[in-house]
Design a protein around this nucleic acid. Sequence first.
DNA 1: CTTAGGG
DNA 2: CCCTAAG
Length: 694
Amino acid sequence: MVLKRQYYGFNGFRVPSFPKGPRSSRGRGLLQKNVNENQICAIELLASLAGKLLQESESSSASSNASEAIEQPAVGNAVIKNEQSEDAPLKPDCFDLGSSEESVCIPALPSPNSDIKFLLKVSQNNANDSILGHSSVISNSDISDKISKEVKPISCTNKIKCEALPVKVDGGSPNPIESCGGNVDSGFGGQQQADALETGDLATGKTSNSKDPVKLCVQFPALNTVDKNTKSSLFGDPIQDISVKRRADFKLGLSDNDENFSSCCKPVNKSKALRPPSRIGDRRIRKLLTSKYWKLAPKLRDYENPRADGEVKPLYRKRKYGHKCERYHQDNFYKRRKFSDDGLIIASDGGLSSESVCNSPEKGKIRDKNGASAMFHRDGLSSSVIGHQSSIHSKESHVKFSIKSFRIPELYIDVPETATVGSLKRTVLEAVTAILGGGLRVGVLFHGKKVRDDNRTLLQTGITSEENLNTLGFSLEPSPIQASTIMCNEDLPASLPCETPLPISRSLASPALDLGISDELADPPPLTDSGNNIESNHKSFSSQTDLLTDRTLPDSRALVPVPHMSAEALAVVPLNQKPRRTEVVQRRTRRPFSVSEVEALVRAVEELGTGRWRDVKLRSFENADHRTYVDLKDKWKTLVHTAKIAPQQRRGEPVPQELLDRVLAAHAYWSQYQAKQHSKNQGAILKIADGPTV
DNA sequence: CTTAGGG
DNA sequence: CCCTAAG
């Protein structure tokens, strides 16, 4: 059939005139962020704290009475003690996060009991722009950097200094904490920041006043556990009866967390150079990880966050970023496991999730001027830990406990209605990150649903009125930290206005949130793309999970249940056992193509034709690293299908008919083209009357 | 690594 | 989206 050239405004279809670039050109190496290897996984950090705490209590129990320890913020306590006991002395200075606008000072020695307030200030200017993102990025890396120096690579001993907890993020207002250091690293966007600084100063940890900050209580989900009884809390809450009298080795045995490790630890470059030699092995592992096993994932977290999409770690990243991580983790696990015999075992379910948002009457609203500013004081991150002393007191007490959740008592977020969700996420992240030391990303939940569009404003999203705030929640998730500063315009160059988030937000925005389990059921037939069936997944959970249940995890509720079994089964991921769920792979999160993406795709295909997906990718999706050429090809496939069906049958974000028409036209054109080529190859010189000219 | 297709 | 066979 002859296509009307008019259809295509420009030159109509053009036969690929240029030869396929040498494959060599493929080498695209971007987003390779050097993530600190020592980046500490939040979970580990927390777990470590717990461990430290326990150790602490035991050691201090001799001289100091338990109450003492109890009175003080566990963190501070632990930190201090650590400092003395551990080899590397803590640096008295704080960690400066770099930008002058936002610096995070982490006092090495938080004074116990002191009501330290932390402020997080973000100037308006930065709220939506890159600066914020930028600083954020810097902050993270910086933190991890710093921490890495202070903290030994997490090892079996888990010596981690958690000086990172008390944090103050502020533009530079005087503050007790601030004395700890200078903004050595600052130097980013001085001008803007200067302005920013003036916009507000929340130096004093006072609640912000005139504005109605939204008070949020962020709750960290629970670290899993192994046992019952003893309850203790970290971070401020009195520790109740920590039965560990002796040294207890602290172990982190995350059943499904190994994945988190991978995401937290450090993304590995995906360049070949960094890849482990054996590809065959990779391949095998990959296979193992895939299909058959990924389904197990749901099981693990199925209880985690029922109504909020469970957090899932982007396991699929492994593929891209290498397998080093895997090994790394395995090693860790192995080590940990070895020690598990006489240690604490903390199993944590990977995602730190949080939700409950407490709407404080007084400060109930979000509004206010410019930048998003958040301030929160740390009465202590609180968490409840349920511990249990092993019945047998022989050598070392075995303490198994679970940390139900960590909480950040008060987190005041004060942002203008015009702030974007993305900035809100960042703001919260800043706060949380400062506290946990990075490695996390924040997800926003509203009405139980994840709000992924970072570009929507709170107003648009409806996160403004007090009533609504009640349904606002945040989730903490392990961050893949691919802070790709480079990837600013992840989206289509041409079509998208560059109001796109920014580096940081990118990572934040990346829907690692969807339960990994997401789609399977949700995936609609190859009709339309898009469609936010994010929520539809919940149901699938149960059914699906059930199938997957296995004895190893008697109780699927990742965090809650403390299987009666030994650590072996639970915490320590049976690394040594069968391949099994140790490596549960998650399905990539669904990312419906936006209209602009479709537009770009159509345009590219019109010009390049089908069959050259790599080129299409390079041409229009170079910066959209989450779109592989296969994705593009698949999308095209669905587009063609969509274009053929009745509009009523289409689902998801409607694609302009105009585009669909172009899809059909292009599809027809290129199909014919291909057919022609084919016949040629066969030597049959078919004359195709109106075929496109070559 | 890419394509092309089925699932 | 995933998985794979093929190239």
